[in-house]
Design a protein around this nucleic acid. Sequence first.
DNA 1: TGAATAGTGTCTGTGAGACAATATTAT
DNA 2: ATAATATTGTCTCACAGACACTATTCA
Lengths: 275, 275
Amino acid sequence: MEKEYKSEEDFLKHYDASAFEKLSATVDIAIFSVASSKQENYRKLNNKHFSVLLVKRNRYPFKDMWCLPGGFIGIDETSEDAAKRVLARETNLKNIYLEQLYTFDDVKRDPRMRIISISYMALVDKNRLDDTLYENASWFNMQIEEEDKNIKINLNNGEENFDIVIKKTLKELTTDRYKYTIAKNDRLAFDHPLTIASGITRIKNKLEYTDVAFNLMPEYFTLGELQQVYEVILGKELLDPAFRRIISSKVEATDKVRVDGGHRPSRLFKYKGNK
Amino acid sequence: MEKEYKSEEDFLKHYDASAFEKLSATVDIAIFSVASSKQENYRKLNNKHFSVLLVKRNRYPFKDMWCLPGGFIGIDETSEDAAKRVLARETNLKNIYLEQLYTFDDVKRDPRMRIISISYMALVDKNRLDDTLYENASWFNMQIEEEDKNIKINLNNGEENFDIVIKKTLKELTTDRYKYTIAKNDRLAFDHPLTIASGITRIKNKLEYTDVAFNLMPEYFTLGELQQVYEVILGKELLDPAFRRIISSKVEATDKVRVDGGHRPSRLFKYKGNK
DNA sequence: TGAATAGTGTCTGTGAGACAATATTAT
DNA sequence: ATAATATTGTCTCACAGACACTATTCA
């Protein structure tokens, strides 16, 4: 039988907060960036790689496996605050692009107890980072192959190299929504392959209709570099004239020029905002 | 000092689940549908309204205010299972379109204690519903006006009529992401105006590039009806030829016809799937 | 017959895809 | 000179917006 209360205050004063079994919540962040690697040929541009920051776990559960940076959400902080806290710890940067992705909450996703994960995606310009990484963290280049209903991601940090495979099964006829399941994974902890896959899907889509890519760029950049960023994330080559047509309204030419190698120098541009 | 464990099992056996303060989690569902209302003029088509199911709270907190259907997430169920449970209770239907929207977790969003809300959007065809609604539930027609940076939603169930206003502030230059804040609301509980606004934004976007709309339709429908559904959700009129061009690849003509009023009868179509 | 919806035809402009052509640099 | 990237020009085709036109029904 429900008791009668005189007012909301009266109710709150008598509220029994233990009536429902509580659970724990964490944030996990897919921190994405684009890495450059030198080419052997002096004429060629640097290679670019879409990359994600992983942390090697030095404690149970999933000891010695890699996972996304994350942490428990305090009782007095929002998940976004927790994500910013983790981000500051890992990168020493503020004002990073941060977007909530999805809440993963399989009952058995953590062997310890019921823990749900509110996942985020962050985009950083690697030029703003110093080279010192927080303990056990490492950038992994990703090679993404989407074939049929499988997403295969090769992860490589120069020392370790492994694949994860995520299988997509269509949820319903009417949309593009898929249920993701892990088809192959023996190096990533928890359900983090799913988080990475959601992040990749999200940023791929957003590249098409927003300017998120500029969060991965330094203040001044060439259109060639920018195009490379689009290309490594989308996993396909773009035609120069088409790319420039689309991007032209969003960037502003500066009078600076970069002289790079055995080819015509390129003008430096900066982001102007979407007009 | 961290203790040394021999193995993952050893660690789990000694794990202290009380180390972090836990919190509660609920699901809240924006159940959307499209309602028809008769026209006085026998020639005209029925009016259509985009509508949402609300429940009048009969207990604290927010007693006597309206809220979205929802409930606590059990320790042994996923948020999606919880959502399906709530949905079955409210509509008596299974196989309803259900999509996770966003996790709202402001520290003070619930006056009782820290409760985060994993929100979902559901789409139902009103023809599948019987008229008996679960206790205190009621369908509200929505009149949505987006002007400048404000979303104004008029809610009307025939007896009660009120407005809520959500203010959008741009999060960053590079995307279309906004921070939503409640600018006006005195009849909806919690932060549910934000949940409704996210749901509306989500379905508006998905109308453009997916076939979600068909989840709101009965098996057989006329193209005029379908167009009305798009129009009331998008809040604008569409040109017939353009609409038919786009939709034609997704529907299949049947030999059935509906004779409606003082005008040419219309052919009935059914959803074919996106070719 | 008139008012309403159902359904089709067609013109025009915009914009993406494709490819060609020119410019400029270090070795 | 050559191989690379930088940058621009232009042709074509698909498609969305716009509007006109025909078809069919009931009071």
